[in-house]
Each structure stands twice: as C-alpha cells, then as structure tokens.
Computed example of a mutant assay.
Amino acid sequence: MRHINTSHIAMAGLVVFSLFGCATQPATLQQGPDAEITKDGLVKVDNSRLALSYVRPDVDWTQYSKLYFRPTKVTNDHPKDYRAPRVDPQTDGLNATYDLPQESLDKMAQQFSKTVQDVFNHEQPFELVTRAGPNTLVIDTAVSDIRLSAPVESSRRSYNSMGKTYTQNSGSMVLLAVLKDGQTDEVLAKAADRAIGFDQWRQNTKVFNWGDVKTVYRRWVNDFKNALMTAAADTPETN
C-alpha cells in the first residue's frame, strides 16, 4: 500500500459480517461428495459475504435467546508468510513501526465490547450474559493481521514536525469468529474475513482512523445480529 509521508494511519476497514449470505445470491451449504467439511463437522457456505464461512447443518438457532461474547482478542499477530512493509529511514524515521502499541490494541478490544453493548440493547430479542449456559450462544472473536498503510503516528519522523500523511486507504485487518453452544461447547459456525479500508485518498489522523474502527465494529455487530435473527426465522418448526 502506498502512502504519502507527512501522521498516523489506522487499522480499520469495512467488514460486512454475515454467516448466511451475500447481497446478490442466497447462501447455501455445499452438498454432495465434493462438499468441503472441516474436522469438526462444519460445512462450507457458498455465496458467503466472508472469505471463509462454515456452519454446522441443521442447527436450531431459535433455541439461543442469550449471547455470551467473550472478550475479543486484538493482536499484532501475522501469518508466517507475512512480510512487514519496508521502513524508509529517510522519510519514515529510524523508529518507525507498523505494529500498534499495546495501548491501541487494548483500546480496540474495549471498543468492540462497547459496540456489542450498544447494539444488543434492551430493544433486541437477545439477552447479553456474562457466562456460558443453557440457551446461550458463545461468541469468540479476534482481530489480527493488522496491516497499516503507513507507520504508527508516534513512531514517525514527522510526528514532532506537524507533518501530514495521505493514504489511499487506512489499511486492513482480519476478523475471526467462532460460535459455540453454551452448554455443550459444540462449535456451530466459524467465519473469517479481511476488512479493507475505504478506498479514498485522504489525510490520516487519529480522529478519522478511530472513527473508522467504530464504524467497522458497529456494522459487523449489526450484521451479526441480523444474521442471527434471519437464521432463527428460517429454522423449520418441529412438532
């Protein structure tokens, strides 16, 4: 990702989370001998909005009236084949880094929890709980492989010289989710997707970038809520 040197870049992007389909075609579970099935019995979803999406067949989603979001994990972890962007000592500075400080990672994790509380309020058909149990869906989430479009603001040479940074987008990050039954701990679904920043040249500041993070989280949690409601509505009634 190119950047024009001269302030901080964020870690956010646009995540559209749904286990159950994309905007143009309905999602379907793969079938037949060529269906992709994980070791824990999850079947790959075709036409998913996410890069990867797997769901256990025949889940009765109507039984889950409670949601337990475990604290999300946000890290600077990358896959083994990741190659960090080259730092230019002349323009970026000797101390420039693309790894977010722990303070920023903690802030991102706290903001995710706050967004969950805001979206799943008293007007929603789900109760947020703080432990696993009957009729509870446990949601484990993680954010990793954060790839900034420019070095962290405080690490850059221009930080103390009132310089500015312009980038085409803010960067990207990977969001992972695992859904489990709160009583049996059975894995019901898994999803993974890379969030890519808005494709628009602009000056990157802490204000703009943190606003991106909050927007991404709100869209993710809202889409997750809508996906659960859709899945429950589409579950066949049993006599």
Rank of each mutant, 00 (worst) to 15 (best):
Y68C: 04
Y68W: 13
Y68A: 04
F69A: 04
F69C: 05
F69G: 02
R70M: 03
R70A: 06
T72R: 01
T72E: 01
V74M: 04
T75L: 06
T75H: 05
N76P: 10
D77C: 11
D77S: 15
H78Y: 14
P79H: 04
K80Q: 15
D81G: 12
D81M: 14
Y82N: 02
R83F: 10
A84E: 09
A84P: 04
R86A: 03
R86G: 01
V87S: 08
D88P: 11
D88C: 14
P89E: 04
D92Q: 08
A96D: 10
A96Y: 08
T97M: 07
Y98F: 14
P101G: 13
P101A: 14
Q102P: 07
Q102H: 15
E103L: 04
D106E: 12
D106V: 06
M108H: 09
M108E: 10
M108I: 13
A109D: 00
Q110S: 12
Q110I: 00
Q111S: 13
Q111I: 01
F112Y: 05
T115I: 14
V116D: 02
V116W: 04
Q117G: 00
Q117M: 00
D118G: 11
D118N: 15
V119I: 15
F120A: 06
N121H: 12
E123P: 01
Q124V: 13
P125I: 15
F126G: 06
F126M: 14
L128C: 06
V129K: 00
V129A: 02
T130D: 09
R131P: 03
R131Q: 11
R131T: 09
G133I: 07
P134H: 10
N135T: 06
N135C: 06
T136F: 12
L137E: 06
